[in-house]
Design a protein around this nucleic acid. Structure first.
Lengths: 192, 192
DNA sequence: TCGATTGTCTAGCGGTGCTAGGATCGGACC
DNA sequence: GGTCCGATCCTAGCACCGCTAGACAATCGA
């Protein structure tokens, strides 16, 4: 039995290596550079090994997305727990969200821009993704205002953050005014 | 001279045909299906002809984006001009924007999701793109509120719309609540 | 020790964006 | 009208992509 366990452990290690390498490569050179050939070379195995862990490149992107969602949820909770009062929490949340997107562009793309073959807003949505949304909901729900459904409010706030994150990074919005945009967003949307 | 003019005209016609065909193909089967081979076949020329008009596929996407921006600007102005009062105008604007994104997903992707090799928020941004932003600014500027820079407000409002458009279409947000989200967005952001 | 199973690799398929170089066609000149 | 020449277009092919069939080696159980 111990032999089998060792093999399972090694296999799990290798799978983590694949995901970590794909993520690293994507952050360094963009997702276009994450080809199955280069990825295989980096992990020092041949291409078919990748396909013994994942159905294809899409699933690898999905794995990076799930890993990223867990990290994002943790980052959001860390930021909000250090803030006092609903308004400060929401501001910290927004800053942390945009900060995460800026620091981990490839992971953010895997989560929200690329097709990772993941379900969303669905019952079989992977747990980390639901949890990341829950992390948003925790702080945003308390500033939704009377008579406004917290979930709907969170969706709207999230959409605004997502728009800011993607448009800024794509050069569609002039960088540098992020702070002012966040302040305006919180001022208007959040009801203390 | 007349011969040269005819040739120039024919060339311009063919260029329009390329862009229109690429757009049609993208709307029907998605941008992934817009391969240079299939596109060439559709316009009944060989692949290299495409490269005598555009530097590459990216520039073709860019051309579709510019065409789309002009249409979007017109659609936004048509919607706002039919509405009375600032608040009604902003609501109409938001609806028209999301409607355009939903009806022309491939064009919307060309404008904001894909790399069309276009400059943004820059002095050498193509005119139609600047004009589309101007169309947003015209209606949004009047509800920015005192002491808030109209441009900054427009950027934020636009980011929210963009987030709603992309997240909804990608299945990240449950469809069907768009109307309520738009109402909430306008209620909170716009200052009548 | 031998057969079976598991694991991995080599080689290759059909596709992609893009391009070099030859063929062809039409207008300009003798 | 015949010849040349330049513009125009196409055939063929490059290097790369995601993905996989089938050969091969290593390991396990009998």
């Amino acid at each position: 039995m111990s032999v089998q366990e060792r093999k399972q452990r090694e296999r799990a290690d290798r799978e983590r290596l694949i995901v970590a390498t794909a993520r690293e490569l994507a952050e360094q050179q963009g997702w276009d550079a994450v080809t199955t050939r280069l990825l295989a070379e980096r992990i020092e195995y041949s291409q078919p090994v990748l396909y013994s862990h994942f159905r294809g490149k899409r699933e690898i992107i999905g794995a990076v997305a799930i890993e990223g969602a867990a990290e994002m949820a943790a980052a959001l909770r860390a930021a909000t727990s250090a803030a006092d009062g609903p308004r400060a929490r929401v501001t910290a949340l927004a800053r942390a969200y945009l900060d995460f997107a800026e620091r981990n562009p490839a992971v953010y793309d895997a989560m929200f821009q690329l097709d990772g073959g993941l379900a969303f807003a669905d019952e079989d949505t992977p747990e980390p993704l639901k949890d990341a949304f829950a992390a948003l909901l925790e702080s945003l729900g308390e500033v939704a205002g009377d008579g406004v459904h917290p979930g709907l409010f969170t969706e709207l706030f999230w959409a605004a953050l997502h728009g800011l994150a993607t448009l800024t990074r794509a050069g569609r919005l002039p960088a540098g005014d992020t702070g002012r945009r966040v302040k305006l967003l919180v001022d208007r949307l959040a009801i203390v």
